[in-house]
Design a protein around this nucleic acid. Structure first.
Lengths: 343, 343
DNA sequence: ACCCAATGAGCGAACGTTCGCTCCTGCACG
DNA sequence: CGTGCAGGAGCGAACGTTCGCTCATTGGGT
């Protein structure tokens, strides 16, 4: 337990018999105008002493921390977790570390988290927290203090946005179901407060109208992104529109609840009710039945956010809107569009 | 996009007409021997200027960053994510920030991540990465440089451990199945390299022996913690022991694959095969059928890790082994031990 | 043999804080 | 009226770096 004291560059320099600034040059700086001999001595001294540069001191003088802040929803949500992890790994691949803050349920502590990140002088911030979509305090902080990129709209704008095409997502799912011959297609949506939900809903409506169908309120039930919420919404849907033959769900997590509720109601999937969802989380393939879903490039979104942010930090101008990433329909069994080989 | 320059305490002091050290006292230090009048002037100047303390500078002089490092497995794994999120929130509640590093698949970059954390002078490190269980380089770094707490065994010891009682977990699951009358109980384990796997297996064997049954190799199949792995292992199990009537799975994630494979093999759950698993991730309740599982207190583990680490940082001696957290059996439908109300 | 350029190393300053000490002022008390 | 003491504020030093400049030495070209 006798913890090793950190050794500073001065001690290394002393042992090598040079000034500490010279040691700094060879150990960290790039401007190595030093003889091979002294360089070697310094390096040797450093390893013998177990020297570890003190990034804190470096950050102070360079006025940059090589750290980015990530404010994320409770990353127990698989989808958010995927984006977060990808973002962290991308940041690290570019020499940056990531300081995270997970919002409490409800997201009331968003501004606190961001303030902390700012005080720690992160070079930039990535917001991956839907709760923040309406938080003007957070938006102000992001606009004023630090380069930022967001995975969802920010009130007042001014923060570059990355993400995928949610309207296409809805359109793709509904179109597929329509193509299978369904005409009474319900939808279990995310929370209405989120733009993503509204976009997906619009995509769904686009598809219905394109097929000559008029969207009905009785076919829409709001979920809350959880399996519970999905189950509850499904029961509501079944009550209002007992005749429906298909459901488009706004997330795989909710789809788990949807499947469960359908099963409990005695409706077989896909024989009685076809289900298409979105995200394509790792579990989707292994549900019973395997879930047909619109794959959302979550990891890719995280990486793109980092890339954009790093460019913004470097001083490059970044557009407030980048092209939305494309989504892709993954057909499995829950929609009945594919014959199960074991049938 | 005109980013606000950070204002230093000196500017605040100048505006308030005091020395910057005095400003420091009222803005950050606790030793406020200052007249109410000047205090007010300083506070006013600070808010007018939008002063944000520079934690970097503070860390430099205080030789402490109020930051802890978290090295985690790819937190796409729901169980790890739960522990991570809880740990971060607990740390923040105690005034600490969290710097994360997610291991690449395979975990080869563990030592790199830890080194980075050390160079950033985190006050302590939490290891929540099973991959690290055999990484002696990581173990050395953790022992030598910085207080640490691990969620899994560390080669050579010397790092306090927190976690739950895995042997009880196996015992509880198998005992329940035995109590239901099963005598041919297979198990889909985690990777054998992990101690947790071996503990759970031992618990399972304990229970069998206590019931007068001899464990058989044909009833054990190694999984890899993924749904895929669970499915593959299940097929293997079915091949070697077609007569089994129950399966104990080492994680809910794998259980999803187990359920899927069973379904594809035409075995009904729980009628033909009963399933009990461990973790109790949020999805467990919504699988078809709802999963009977041994709840592992993941969030609680994360919190306990932080608590221990903070004490260690504060200089208190912490025991290398804390009492294991208790687990609890959650009975749902997949084990057949409970009559489904809809039956 | 002389000058100048290039090479190698040193040195002061700065980054934004905290910490502990010193100094000044004024007031109460003997 | 002098002494002591407490309250209030200031000041120097330090934390561990990086950065840009200066200085000394060497060697090659004419």
């Amino acid at each position: 337990m006798a913890r090793r004291r950190y050794v500073s560059i001065k001690e290394v320099a002393a042992r090598a018999g040079v000034s500490f600034q010279t040691a700094s040059k060879v150990l960290n700086g790039g401007d190595v105008r030093v003889s091979a001999d002294t360089e070697e001595r310094i390096l040797a001294a450093a390893t013998e002493l177990g020297y570890r540069p003190n990034t804190i001191a470096r950050s102070l003088v360079q006025r940059a921390t090589a750290t980015i802040g990530l404010v994320a929803s409770d990353a127990t949500d698989v989808a958010i977790a995927q984006a977060s992890v990808a973002a962290e790994q991308a940041a690290r691949a570019n020499g940056h570390s990531v300081l995270v803050g997970h919002l409490a349920a409800g997201g009331a502590d968003g501004a606190d988290i961001v303030r902390t990140l700012i005080e720690r002088r992160v070079d930039g911030i990535i917001a991956a927290a839907p709760e923040v979509e309406e938080d003007t305090e957070v938006a102000d902080l992001l606009r004023r203090y630090v380069p930022a990129v967001s995975l969802q709209a920010v009130p007042g704008g001014g923060v570059p946005l990355v993400g995928s095409n949610h309207r296409d997502t809805g359109r793709l799912a509904a179109t597929h179901l329509l193509g299978l011959g369904h005409t009474s297609i319900g939808t279990v949506t995310g929370t209405f407060r989120r733009r993503m939900t509204r976009s997906r809903l619009h995509g769904y409506e686009d598809a219905l109208r394109a097929a000559g169908l008029e969207p009905s309120e009785d076919l829409v039930a709001e979920g809350d992104w959880t399996p519970q919420g999905g189950a509850t919404a499904t029961r509501l849907l079944l009550e209002h529109s007992p005749g429906l033959t298909a459901i488009f769900v706004h997330s795989d997590a909710m789809a788990i609840g949807v499947l469960s509720a359908l099963w409990q109601a005695g409706r077989r999937v896909p024989a009685d009710v076809a289900v298409v969802s979105c995200d394509d989380i790792p579990f989707a393939e292994f549900l019973t039945p395997p879930l047909t879903t619109v794959r959302v490039p979550l990891a890719e979104t995280g990486r793109q956010a980092v890339e954009l942010l790093l460019r913004s930090i470097a001083g490059e101008p970044v557009p407030e809107r980048t092209p939305l990433l494309p989504v892709e329909l993954i057909v499995r069994d829950s929609c009945g569009g594919r014959r199960n080989p074991s049938d």
